[in-house]
């Protein structure tokens, strides 16, 4: 009987290996158990002296009537020529002091300074209402074969930092984007996740820590990045059924429920930015790695 012991030990070892792999898989689905919206700390800009108006103002980055950023309140609009000097913007985030951080976006035509503008992160100051370059990223290199650079920005209330994503250098066969964690005070990149093109990012709380939810620019997919973990590898949560679409905005509307705004995107220039070229889906997490996605 003892002569078969090595075979039994080998079988047990292999079984253990498979159990380990399976458990790793399970921990992937557990990553987003208890998905919920973190506490919001954003405040409206202080240059709106009327708090009532400030709360109901809509930030307009559609580039339809105004280049850059504008504020719409009912029929009224607030716009300064100075806010159009850095070209078009794609996304923004509001800080706890009312500063607005903006990510650029190339739009319809490429001009001489278009690529340079994609290398910056911008700030609209809460008090002075002055728009300026907040950070310049030398490492970001937009090109004719991929005119995009910094594409998304998010304020992190927990440590007053910024999460910034860039999708330059990616090509048809290679994904070379970065998600950077930026310290607001020192304006330095303190951490970086490489090889992933995040088209949009948002923070979420889960039962197992915080995750960065990211809509991929490369695939029609939503990813989660466990930012509290040592291994910050993006993990795919689900694919959209329409492979032309990319998630451009993520909003946590309830526990385990996301509102996703999706657009057509293929790393060529954006011509249409109005709402009618966007679709909205609701993604509900039903546990065990399973999602239900429906039109909003």
């Amino acid at each position: 009987m003892r002569r078969y012991l090595p075979i039994v030990v080998a079988l047990v070892a292999v079984a253990g290996l498979f159990i380990y792999v399976e458990l790793s898989k399970k921990s992937t689905s557990e990553l987003i158990e208890g998905l919920s919206r973190p506490k919001n700390c954003s405040k409206p800009p202080q240059f709106f002296d009327n708090p009532k108006v400030a709360r109901s103002v809509v930030i307009d980055l559609s580039q339809q009537r105004f280049k850059g950023i504008a504020f719409i309140h009912g029929q009224d609009s607030l716009y300064s020529k100075q806010w159009g000097q850095y070209g078009h913007f794609g996304t923004y985030t509001l800080s706890d002091s009312g500063d607005i951080y903006l990510a650029p976006m190339p739009f319809i035509s490429i001009k001489e300074n278009t690529f340079d503008l994609q290398k910056n992160l911008y700030k609209l100051d809460s008090k002075s209402a002055k728009l300026s370059v907040f950070m310049h990223f030398d490492s970001v290199e937009p090109a004719r074969s991929n005119p995009f650079g910094i594409i998304s920005v998010l304020f992190d209330c927990q440590d007053r930092s910024l999460w910034v994503s860039a999708i330059d250098k990616s090509s048809y066969s290679t994904q070379a984007g970065r998600v950077m964690h930026v310290d607001l005070e020192s304006r330095e990149v303190i951490d970086q996740i490489d090889g992933f093109d995040a088209f949009t990012i948002t923070l979420a709380d889960t039962d197992h820590g915080r995750v960065l939810l990211a809509g991929s620019a490369y695939e029609p997919s939503l990813y989660a990045i466990p930012i509290d973990s040592a291994d910050q590898k993006p993990i795919k949560l689900f694919d959209l059924l329409d492979s032309n679409k990319r998630i451009r905005k993520i909003k946590i509307i309830d526990r385990d429920k996301l509102l996703l705004q999706v657009v057509d995107f293929s790393y060529s220039l954006v011509a249409m930015s109005s709402d009618r070229y966007r679709e909205e889906y609701v993604a509900s997490y039903s546990g065990s790695g399973s999602w239900h996605i429906g039109l909003y």
Binding site: Y4, P6, I7, A10, L11, V14, L17, F18, V21, T28
Partner: peptide, 23 residues
């Protein structure tokens, strides 16, 4: 028997690796 055990470990490890990569 030892040869068989070694064979099981090698083949099992490769199978586990392929399964893990497929995930």
């Amino acid at each position: 028997e030892n040869k068989m055990a070694l064979f099981i470990v090698i083949v099992g490890s490769i199978a586990a690796l392929i399964y893990s990569l497929s995930l």
